[in-house]
Design a protein around this nucleic acid. Structure first.
Lengths: 120, 120
DNA sequence: GGGTTATTCAACCGATTGGTTGAAGATGTG
DNA sequence: CACATCTTCAACCAATCGGTTGAATAACCC
């Protein structure tokens, strides 16, 4: 369950260590060992984190001898942004609508029809 | 662990059912029962999902008799968008830089200084 | 007050997660 | 080839997660 792309991306970014790794990769490519260095967990744990980020499509990896340098992939961010912006906009639109309704109610207070719909 | 705001938000949105709930709330407020109706899980399960969304600050709730209508909160989206946009921009900048470097390498191929920095 | 409706609490369960240790691959270097 | 380095695989563990059922709250309606 929750195997779709968006779920994997959000799930990957739900961990602060992984977000930190993303942040550091934004400054430049790095190997597993380099990425693992600042944290006080084993390099295997970081390797797992990187796997999660890779599966989510947030990073890609090449090969340089024994090293597997990680690179941040910008594309996936669009996927998130699109989802987020869509619902944020709708929420804001609704907010503006509510404001309008409240304004009108002020001008011309309750007459009849007790308003009780909205969702259904 | 992973108790900071951003972690809670990303984690909340990592579940497709919860994203669906957010999507539906973008169209208008709704009660727990109304939200639970379309899914084939118990209302308790949905209640838990809503709790998670509320703890993440993605929704707020009021009271209407026994009902607890849920409303989408737009603000939190900004938090995500800011984080995302920041690193997306950096990734894209780096991408452009790389392009420039490759271009220059084409014009004037390898001379000396074997270039081996970038991350550290 | 008694019954109904809406929601949550509590305890439990199987799967997943983030971590560990230890061994195995993969690859350059003496 | 032997060895060191970088990375992953495998097995395990405690904690969390998404779900369940059953009981408890909360508020309305007759």
């Amino acid at each position: 369950m929750a195997n779709d792309r968006l779920s994997r991306v959000f799930s990957a970014l739900a961990d602060p260590t992984r977000r930190d790794i993303v942040a550091r990769l934004a400054a430049g490519d790095a190997t597993v060992n380099e990425l693992a260095e600042p944290y006080d967990v084993t390099v295997q744990a970081v390797s797992k984190h990187i796997r999660v980020l890779e599966d989510a499509g947030l990073i890609s990896r090449s090969r340089d001898a024994q090293r597997r340098p990680c690179r941040l992939e910008g594309e996936v961010f669009d996927l998130m942004t699109k989802w987020i912006e869509r619902y944020r906009r709708e929420a804001e639109d609704r907010f503006r609508q509510l404001d309008a309704v409240l304004e009108q109610m002020e001008e011309q207070p309750v007459t009849g029809t007790p308003a009780k719909e909205a969702a259904s």
